[in-house]
Amino acid sequence: MGLYKWFKRAFAGNCDECLKLLELILDGEASDEQKKSFTIHIDNCKNCYEYYNLELTIKKLLKEKIESQPVPLDLVDSIKFKVRNNL
């Protein structure tokens, strides 16, 4: 049996397994094997596909839409000064 068929048989339709992988995929922590079996599953499972897309969208939202505060300039100066003067 080819590897592809083995994966398909083992993981397609198994949402619990997919969920365990989902956050690893989301966070770039999945192995190549895990990525393969995850992809096969979401290609065949609408629920998991949508769930994954939602989580991905939220992650992007956090990264792209949250504005970062500018660092108060006096803080940078204060730190540099104290460090150079052993305070």
Partner: peptide, 20 residues
Amino acid sequence: YNSDDIDHSITTDLRIESVQ
């Protein structure tokens, strides 16, 4: 992990469009 998470209304109540 529980696949009930995805079966119930989570995906239908919070739509990707709203989030975007």
